[in-house]
Design a protein around this nucleic acid. Sequence first.
DNA 1: ACCTGAACACCGTTCAAGT
DNA 2: ACCTGAACACCGTTCAAGT
Lengths: 222, 222
Amino acid sequence: MTTAPDAHRPAGRPRQAILSHERILAAAFELADVKGGDFTLAALARNLEVRPSALHHYFAGKDELIAGMRGQLTRRVGDHGFESRPWHVAIADWARAYRDTFGAHPGIIAALATMPVDDEPESIIDYERIAAAMRRDGYPERRIVPAIVAIESFVIGSALDSLAPADNLRPVDNSVLAPHLTRAEERAREHADELNTTVTVETFEFGLAALIAGLMAAGAQD
Amino acid sequence: MTTAPDAHRPAGRPRQAILSHERILAAAFELADVKGGDFTLAALARNLEVRPSALHHYFAGKDELIAGMRGQLTRRVGDHGFESRPWHVAIADWARAYRDTFGAHPGIIAALATMPVDDEPESIIDYERIAAAMRRDGYPERRIVPAIVAIESFVIGSALDSLAPADNLRPVDNSVLAPHLTRAEERAREHADELNTTVTVETFEFGLAALIAGLMAAGAQD
DNA sequence: ACCTGAACACCGTTCAAGT
DNA sequence: ACCTGAACACCGTTCAAGT
């Protein structure tokens, strides 16, 4: 949190540019890292010690800024060896990176997930790489897009789910109202402890493995 | 869209109450049905021909209103024969109803998905019913919650995905940049046409079936 | 070209005032 | 108890004005 620009900068063009797409995006991600923090252009401008209207010189509006953020995140997810490894191996790494990358900015996931991805070049490139690998490995063509969409839906949903407060922070005790659920939660926690990981991670890994296995089986018998 | 209350109602308590939790929620859902429509208390008040501040008499704030909406949606999803049918059969219907119910209000899914479900009674009851059925059918206890979370993540992600513009509305032609993807999309569309359904529905069904099958297999070998 | 500053049409929320 | 009306602290966006 930086304070407002009280050492008032005079009006008029500064001798050297203060802002840039990179600087704005970096500050935007920093802002999105704070969980409860409302992601507003006003707050972003404050952190950059600039007036809100200055931002419109670089991004037409909030939507365009968010689109820029998603583009950068998608690039960060990166390649995961789809050319050299079977699709079902590479896609597990891809899904993990996808979830980690987007999950690292809880303040913005909702906006990212909501705003439609109308033909973002970065995403198209990603999908093309995956589609090519699946075709190469003999996956039925009519199932390729549905399979990719399924994994992406699962990943996005998982990222959103991780926003919920951790189970151990639950204020209410449901053991009477929901005995089976409570018991199952305890078992899941024990299991995660044994594996020296968190419930969130283990849950994601279990679901991801099951989904990929299911997609492979469905593709094989097609 | 109703107009503003120009036949000004005088200040002071009306002879008969104009609002109620039900009326507000009904209007809220109507507002959430409109895709692009911004879901604001101000707009909601306009539709109800009431001042925004009047709403605070029934819901403490916007968050509480949204929580109320989700509670009602969760109740609408309803039971799906978990007591009388194998969990993997019942849960397919449950997931379908879940997605349809939440997907019917695109304007609010994001808010619903974002706001944490800290112990909503309706959800707890739902989960308990599912957990009991899975345990009865011999599903490994430590996998029950992860399996439920996986399906829910997939459903939420799918509901969000359906917000994106339909593939056939894509303005850009990617056939050169992404030939494999384009071809795979065509095959998926042809297949959906043959089945006399939409790509969205067929994609969801394929992913759901694969996920459930994968979860069953993972549970069986545990 | 790149920023400030003022202005506009909105928000959500609080609270006194009226019946 | 249930609504209006005024007030407050915010938004995002536009645009003239300054260098």
